[in-house]
Amino acid sequence: MNLGILFGGKSYEHEISIVSAITLKDVFKNNLYFVFCDKDKEFYLIENHNMKASYFSSFEYKKSKKLTIKNGGFFIQGMFSKKIPVDVYINLIHGNDGEDGKIASLFEFFDIKFIGAKIEASVLSYSKILTKYLAKMVGVKTLDYQVLKRGDEINLNFPVILKPAELGSSIGISVVKEQSKLAYSLDNSFEYSKNLLVEPFIDGVKEYNLAGFRLKDEIKFSFIEEPNKKEILDFEQKYLNFSGNSKIKKADITQELEQKIQEEFKKIYNFGFDGAIIRCDFFVIDNEVYLNEINANPGSLAYYLFDDFENLVYELAKNLPNTNNIKINYDYLHLISSNK
């Protein structure tokens, strides 16, 4: 079975997606097919040996074979259109385009098999506001929150944390502890989103991350990570200081708490995430588990949280949910014609 990785996209997380794809190249022993979507929504086939940061930052990728998407997959452009021999694609575009449902829609429209969240699950998990509604529907606790738009009358109980509602990777988040710092933080966060999610900031709150996916009738869980952080887990701590698995810390928690976190994950996953590898980030307060956010396309697919990741991905690719194959036979039109 041949796997392909679609990465890039037009979003604030474009470069993070590139880093994720480069990382997975080294994780998989088998060769992968890499399809890059640039800021102009053009698709390119990237050879494995060109999967390095400088190839993209220098725009050398434009020398690669250009692709078009049609029913069944990606095709090399030219006089004789040749299909890329990929059986299943992995949606590895982070943020806008990849996690908001656009790529899921594109793949589903063209009958392309893929690992990733489908349209409805993508829409609900991409928006931090809709994620709150999803959690409420399935009975998972979340922190109290407010939604702010520019020009809204603001009445906050400090300290609070401001989060752009449609963005990941901890981009644009701010902790505000007093009124005098609010205006600057609002301007910063509104640069990234027209809606802000405002939650109480709890200093020193315990955070735990869990990834997983359904394989046949069983959810395969990763180990639970307790991320290293300062005050908050911001963009710099997530990405700029990344140096491989040395920073990954398996959570030292009781079996009871581990099972609680897994049960809350199941409730979320069962609401339409079949076929996707997702990571849920949780808070634990007074031994109660609260959902922080859902990562429908986690960085590097959260491979570092799993044992035997490559084999698990291939098993998932072989056991993706079946799509509804609608037959078009024109019986109704034949009936109309015959009655004239």
Results as ranks from 00 to 15, higher is better:
residue 170 S to W: 07
residue 151 G to L: 01
residue 126 Y to A: 06
residue 191 E to V: 10
residue 202 I to N: 10
residue 93 I to W: 11
residue 154 I to Y: 04
residue 111 D to M: 00
residue 210 L to I: 15
residue 200 P to W: 02
residue 220 K to C: 09
residue 191 E to N: 10
residue 187 D to A: 12
residue 123 V to N: 00
residue 205 V to N: 06
residue 113 K to W: 02
residue 193 S to H: 13
residue 103 I to C: 01
residue 107 F to N: 00
residue 173 I to W: 02
residue 120 E to L: 00
residue 203 D to C: 08
residue 147 V to P: 14
residue 100 D to G: 02
residue 178 E to Y: 12
residue 206 K to E: 15
residue 156 L to I: 11
residue 204 G to M: 14
residue 163 K to S: 06
residue 102 K to W: 11
residue 126 Y to V: 14
residue 183 A to V: 01
residue 186 L to H: 08
residue 201 F to A: 14
residue 124 L to T: 00
residue 200 P to T: 12
residue 140 V to W: 08
residue 177 K to W: 08
residue 121 A to M: 07
residue 153 E to F: 01
residue 94 H to V: 12
residue 209 N to K: 03
residue 111 D to S: 13
residue 161 I to V: 14
residue 114 F to Y: 15
residue 112 I to H: 12
residue 106 L to E: 02
residue 163 K to V: 09
residue 143 L to R: 09
residue 164 P to L: 14
residue 114 F to S: 04
residue 108 E to N: 12
residue 103 I to Y: 03
residue 118 K to A: 01
residue 219 I to D: 00
residue 138 V to G: 03
residue 178 E to D: 14
residue 221 F to Q: 04
residue 97 D to L: 01
residue 174 S to K: 08
residue 159 P to F: 04
residue 154 I to V: 10
residue 104 A to G: 11
residue 106 L to C: 03
residue 98 G to I: 03
residue 94 H to L: 08
residue 122 S to V: 09
residue 137 M to D: 15
residue 102 K to A: 11
residue 212 G to L: 11
residue 142 T to A: 13
residue 151 G to D: 07
residue 123 V to R: 00
residue 178 E to N: 15
residue 113 K to Y: 04
residue 132 K to L: 04
residue 119 I to Y: 03
residue 169 S to K: 10
residue 208 Y to G: 01
residue 222 S to Q: 08
residue 216 K to H: 09
residue 124 L to G: 14
residue 201 F to I: 11
residue 128 K to A: 05
residue 131 T to G: 04
residue 106 L to P: 02
residue 96 N to M: 10
residue 198 V to L: 13
residue 96 N to H: 09
residue 116 G to A: 06
residue 189 S to W: 05
residue 103 I to D: 06
residue 203 D to G: 01
residue 214 R to L: 09
residue 135 A to C: 14
residue 207 E to P: 12
residue 137 M to Y: 13
residue 93 I to P: 10
residue 204 G to L: 13
residue 160 V to F: 00
residue 135 A to L: 11
residue 126 Y to M: 15
residue 155 N to H: 12
residue 204 G to K: 01
residue 196 L to Q: 14
residue 113 K to F: 07
residue 148 L to I: 06
residue 130 L to V: 04
residue 155 N to A: 10
